[in-house]
């Protein structure tokens, strides 16, 4: 790839992390060899809000259709044969 066409990320407050994502740097702007390297870097900095897991846990607890799913498989197996 033409070096001029590399994607640069000037602000580098985590060079160690950057080096794990296909970037090269010479104490200056970070350069991403490919767009997917830039996306990988962006993803590593994008943390899902904790509220999602909390909301998901609440949904699983409150959904009556999921009660059976929450039981261990062997309990469901034994319960199937019960009168």
């Amino acid at each position: 790839m033409d070096p001029q066409s590399r994607l640069r990320h000037e602000h580098s407050d985590d060079f160690a992390a950057a080096s794990r994502h296909g970037m090269v740097s010479q104490n200056g702007p970070l350069e991403f060899l490919h767009p997917e390297d830039l996306l990988r870097h962006d993803r590593s900095r994008t943390v899902p809000p904790a509220a999602i897991a909390q909301r998901l846990a609440a949904s699983i607890d409150q959904d009556p259709t999921l009660i059976q799913s929450r039981q261990p498989w062997w309990k469901r197996l034994l319960g199937r044969g019960a009168p």
Binding site: D2, Q4, S5, L7, R8, H9, E10, H11, P29, E31
Partner: peptide, 16 residues
């Protein structure tokens, strides 16, 4: 392909 200097980014939010 772009021939000028690539883009520069100052903050993570801007990058996103």
């Amino acid at each position: 392909a772009p021939t000028s200097s690539p883009l520069r980014i100052l903050e993570t939010k801007e990058l996103g």
